[in-house]
């Protein structure tokens, strides 16, 4: 453990970008937790006389078509956006890792059927599949989470399956089997913890993608309803005013979105360097 920490410190010293990404992620999490309490304006209160003001000292990111403070809305949206992405990734991680691990360990018929199911999911363009799922399940926020989780599922299943498959006949797995653990025990107590670090990298890389996906769906008008502050829907509302030059309505929530995705992606790359320096590109 100590060696891992020392390796992590060594990698971080040579790689300040990962450190910055970690800091950025920390700021995002902080904003998601306590951001709404810090705001000077109510993110949903309209103030029509102040509509469409450019950024100023009073309104750092300007105001939107109803006079709402864009800065407050961008900050308030952090919690919802991160929550959607995190729950979606957590769901697909939990189910994907479990299903994939059992497929890789047990193999046989289970493996074949799950493999077919994954093939069918992968035969759809994934964003289109997410749209269709939201349509089928109903146009609500929790269904954005389920849809994003389902389109992420194939990657986790395949990843966990491959990782378990190369380990299933190693000595320590053999030893676990011999000491009387059934398949469930071997997978849950030995194999899953062993592949966890590698999966953590996937999770971090995947979070950015999940945020883009969820924001894309709500940009299209799926899931989140208009008064709610959310980055995707804010860009969609601002899109109507871009041809009349009201850039801050698109740029501010768009920049927040980019910042979040950038942090998660860079953090994921950094984690991968720490865990497996060979994969560095």
């Amino acid at each position: 453990m100590n060696a891992t920490l020392r390796h992590a410190a060594w990698v971080l010293r040579g790689n300040p970008v990962t450190l910055l990404a970690g800091l950025g992620t920390f700021v995002l999490l902080l904003l998601a937790l306590i951001g709404p309490a810090l705001l000077a304006y109510d993110p949903v209160a309209s103030n029509v006389p102040m509509a469409l003001q450019p950024p100023s000292a009073a309104h750092w990111f300007g105001t939107d078509q109803l006079g709402r403070d864009v800065f407050s809305r961008v900050i308030a949206a952090t919690r919802l956006d991160l929550a959607i992405a995190a729950s979606a990734v957590a769901l697909s991680f939990a189910f994907g890792a479990m299903i994939g691990a059992f497929c890789g360990y047990i193999g046989g018929r289970l493996d074949r059927w799950v493999g077919r199911f994954v093939d069918v999911l992968m035969a759809f363009p994934l964003f289109v599949l997410a749209m269709a799922l939201v349509a089928a399940l109903g146009n609500r926020v929790e269904n954005i989470i389920y849809a994003t989780a389902i389109i992420n599922l194939p990657f986790y299943i395949r990843f966990a399956r491959a990782e378990v498959n190369v380990r299933r006949n190693l000595g320590w797995v053999e030893a676990a089997r011999c000491s009387g653990h059934g398949p469930v025990g071997v997978v849950m107590r030995f194999l899953l913890p062993n592949i966890l670090p590698a999966m953590a990298v996937q999770v971090s890389l995947n979070l950015g993608w999940a945020i883009l996906n969820a924001a894309g769906l709500s940009f299209l008008g799926l899931g989140v309803r208009p008064p709610t502050p959310e980055w995707g829907i804010m860009v969609a509302e601002g899109a109507r005013f871009i041809t009349s030059g009201k850039w801050w309505l698109v740029v501010c929530p768009g920049a927040a979105l980019m910042f979040a995705v950038l942090c998660f992606n860079l953090l994921g790359d950094g984690l991968r360097d720490i865990l497996d320096p060979r994969l560095r590109t």
Partner: peptide
Amino acid sequence: CTLGVCVPTFVSGLLLIYAFYYL
């Protein structure tokens, strides 16, 4: 490349419209 994957298509599209149509 790093920035490219972070910009959502709907944001970059709107920014291009702002720059090349409006400005």
